[in-house]
């Protein structure tokens, strides 16, 4: 069966190829060993990371890199916590120096309780980062016009939210996500809002290139098991998308032939 499914179903962002269509965040875990075990179980090849000050009062604290190897996983540094273009550029310049790569996740958020993408600030930061040579994967609203504009500016991936960050509500606006996918010439990832495996499946069935999940794995009762479930969910959704689902109909259609009945 696996030979029928094929192995060549990779997706490409900024010239880098990935077999796994699940990108995972590394935040919110109770400890680093659990982070490492869950990421392993997820099969992800790309992980998002944050950039923060070194804690000078606890210099021997274990570091993420000791558990999640940057040699094995593609680190995608984010701009979480940045509210202006200047802060985003400063943060990612530091990330580029720390890691030596220029593929980044831009996210400029509004205040709680929505943490909704601040699109004017996102546009401004995207412009500054692209000018500075970064390859920008951009977290954004599920707005097809904004998504197209970000693509035209040179963003290498468009990442609309499925639902508010950490809400676990699943894709709330599938029509708009689908419109964004249909018009995009760069990869589209649903980022934020996945609550459980079938949310990831649903997002993939819409035709996205990949799904980004953090809270749903990290905050599950058993993060390692949920990571494995997400892997299966993403694979199922991708295969179903490739297979082509049956049309929805408002009437029944018998599965067994109505001819040849005994009688």
């Amino acid at each position: 069966m696996d030979s029928y499914v094929g192995t060549g179903d990779e997706w490409t962002v900024a010239g880098r190829k990935f077999a796994s269509r699940l990108v995972v965040g590394t935040g919110k875990y109770k400890d680093l060993p659990t982070t490492a075990a869950a990421i392993e179980a997820s099969g992800a090849e790309m992980v998002t990371v944050a950039v923060r000050r070194v804690n000078l009062s606890d210099r021997n604290a274990p570091m993420l890199q000791d558990y999640v190897s940057p040699q094995r996983y593609t680190y995608l540094p984010n701009t979480a916590g940045c509210f202006t273009a200047d802060e985003a550029v400063r943060t990612l310049r530091l990330a580029r120096e720390a890691g030596g790569w220029n593929l980044v996740k831009l996210e400029v958020l509004g205040p709680a309780p929505t943490l909704y993408p601040d699109m004017p600030a996102t546009f401004e930061a995207a412009k500054a980062l692209i000018k500075d040579g970064f390859e920008v994967m951009v977290y954004c609203s599920d707005d097809p016009i904004a998504a197209k504009r970000l693509e035209e500016m040179g963003c290498v991936a468009i990442m609309p939210l499925g639902a508010p960050i950490g809400s676990g509500l699943g894709v709330q606006n599938p029509l708009m996500i689908q419109m964004i996918i249909e018009q995009a010439k760069v990869p589209v990832l649903v980022d934020a809002g996945v609550g459980t495996a079938y949310d990831a499946t649903f997002a993939m069935e819409l035709g996205c290139d990949a799904v980004l999940v953090n809270s749903a794995i990290a905050m599950a009762n058993d993060p390692v098991l949920m990571a494995r479930a997400m892997k299966a969910g993403v694979e199922a959704g991708r295969l179903a998308f490739r297979a082509g689902r049956i049309p929805r109909r408002g009437f029944a259609s018998a599965s067994s032939p109505m001819t040849g009945l005994i009688g």
Binding site: G25, T26, G27, K28, Y29, L32, T35, T48, V49, A50, V51, R52, R53, V54, L56, M63, L64, Q65, P70, Y75, P77, N78, A80, T91, L94, A95, A98, G99, I165, A192, L212, N214, S215
Partner: peptide
């Protein structure tokens, strides 16, 4: 000076 490193994030 700012000295930073990578930590867990989404």
């Amino acid at each position: 000076l700012e000295i930073v490193h990578f930590i867990g994030g989404g």
